[in-house]
Design a protein around this nucleic acid. Structure first.
Lengths: 150, 150
DNA sequence: ACGGGTCAACGAATTATATTCGGCCCCAGG
DNA sequence: CCTGGGGCCGAATATAATTCGTTGACCCGT
């Protein structure tokens, strides 16, 4: 992880489709060198994959919410089963398994408030291990790039 | 948004670098057609961009946490200023602005518990508008693809 | 039913990019 | 001082992206 790797990680986070030539030009190195660097980063597991970011409203999922959940008992088995259940729900964007007050944070994208209501009341509350649910609507959500060291 | 667009959205979420030829072959259409479809999805704002997913432990940020924050007073001005402050912190991965019990959820990636402690106690608590903080360590975190309709 | 117009898709030709590979340079170890 | 390894380079080659003229399907008005 020298400053070249670090710069590549930064540039690729901004635009994962930037051409190898482009990257090489910006960094002042040969395309072949750049290619080898990127390959190495992938092989070392630093770069995990290339994802495409989609516009949720365009897909009819313009409302986001975060659902905090506690399960009972908070045993490994119960937590794993609940997690698997939640991850299979199509409305779910991501799931955090936490220490502390809540066991889960579930980030969902839904069509509208009715849809949200249905997800919480029809889907989640099916689960008997569910002890507590608090739903918060997301006003705005932003993501930052990760700055690579060295 | 016909089923071709939908399939493209799905495939590109899985691998944003999949070659146009590859996509076309899988969908049974000509490369030129596929290219035009992807361009259209970008132009219509359905596809927002191509990001590279990085491995946080590889970058020395192996510990994740979610920090729930309330600010006082919860006015637009206070919330906007706090948000701008938080988004500028390098440890921050994403910020949710919420309705309900908490005003913010801050997802951070840090080196270790000491680093986390420092972020919360040295950085966040600098802010006088901060009324309440609850930190939860993330055991695991998973993201799902968005399924496109039609 | 017919004719015209529009639009998306096609595929060959062109342009641009990725990838390979032999050689060179620098540095560390002997 | 000699030597080996590693990283980088750039020309050559393979693959892919992109353009564009053409074609056929569909829709609409007559």
């Amino acid at each position: 992880m020298d400053e070249l790797d670090s710069a590549l990680v930064r540039l690729l986070q901004e635009d994962g489709r930037r051409s190898n030539r482009d990257l090489a030009r910006e960094l002042g190195i040969a395309p072949s060198t750049c290619l080898e660097r990127v390959r190495s980063l992938r092989a070392r597991g630093v770069l995990l994959g290339f994802r495409t970011e989609v516009d949720l409203p365009s897909l009819g999922r313009g409302l986001q919410a975060v659902i905090a959940v506690r399960v009972r008992p908070p045993s490994r088995r119960v937590i794993e089963e609940f997690r698997a259940f939640v991850e299979a729900m199509p409305e779910v964007l991501s799931v955090f398994v936490l220490t502390g007050g809540d066991d889960f944070l579930i980030h969902v994208a839904v069509r509208d408030t009715e849809h949200l209501h249905s997800v919480v009341l029809d889907e989640l509350t099916k689960r008997t291990e569910l002890a507590d649910v608090r739903t918060s609507v997301v006003y705005s959500h932003m993501s930052r790039k990760v700055v690579a060291p060295a």
